[in-house]
């Protein structure tokens, strides 16, 4: 299994039956593929519906039904369409249980930067600031480092998308919980040692006893 699928599969284990979940673009979108069969998760698409389903067969394709990345999708029975005011009322109003997003940087206070690199890449925040502010739980799903450069920092130095927002960080190396004391390494991928995970993390990881082995099933 490739690294991104591994991360997505671990994230999917967090959900409980009946949760409303919003997935960001990229790696987070893959999480939908790994939700356990006995768990019914409802996905929101911030462009205007809940009940997001899988990609359509060619004969099912409807150009009016796309995800927030503009990719054609289907809706599941029980879905509902709405306008952007309702969509962001759902998001800001605390009705979304989990949002899963990628990040450029996360720090030990749960601050997150994921919408711009000044002078280089300024795509805009889209719905990310609202999701980070309004979702009950925020999971960052990302590769632990960016080609060797560290992303889990003491303090983010890129413009923040939100402050004190992140609850859990899931990478190919482990699962890190953001707590008032700092970042706690809860689970570790057995392919790595605690020292290796720490070496790939600028922030000091808090180890309480022995981290559990990262399980996908």
């Amino acid at each position: 299994m490739d690294v991104k699928s591994f991360i997505a599969k671990r994230v999917a284990r967090e959900f409980k039956d009946g949760n409303l979940v919003n997935l960001g673009i990229g790696l987070p979108t893959m999480v939908a593929n790994y939700v356990p069969e006995n768990i019914n998760v409802i996905f929101q698409s911030e462009n205007g519906f809940i009940g997001l389903g899988p990609a359509p067969a060619p004969e099912q394709l409807d150009p009016a039904i796309t995800n927030a990345g503009g990719i054609p999708v289907t809706v599941k029975p029980g879905a509902a369409f709405f306008d952007s005011a309702t969509s962001f009322g759902i998001i800001r109003g605390g009705h979304v249980d989990y949002t899963v997003l990628g990040a450029l940087q996360v720090d030990e206070k749960g601050n997150i930067a994921n919408y711009m690199i000044p002078g280089k890449m300024v795509p805009g925040m889209g719905g990310a600031m609202d999701l980070l502010t309004g979702a009950k739980k925020v999971i960052v799903a990302m590769e632990h480092t960016a080609k060797g450069s560290l992303k889990i920092l003491k303090k983010c130095n890129l413009p923040l998308t939100a402050i004190n927002a992140v609850d859990l960080i899931v990478t190919e190396m482990g699962v890190i919980e953001v707590t008032p004391e700092g970042l706690v390494l809860k689970e570790i991928n057995p392919e790595y040692t605690v020292e290796q995970v720490q070496a790939a993390t600028e922030a000091t990881l808090i180890i309480k006893g022995k981290p559990e082995i990262m399980k996908l099933d």
Binding site: D83, F88, G119, M125, M129, D130
Partner: peptide, 21 residues
């Protein structure tokens, strides 16, 4: 992005939920 970087067009980015409100 090019027009913004080169100062041809002013761009103001607003969170989506804020913009609709």
């Amino acid at each position: 992005g090019r027009q913004m970087m080169e100062g041809e067009t002013e761009v103001e980015l607003v969170p989506q939920g804020t913009l609709i409100e």
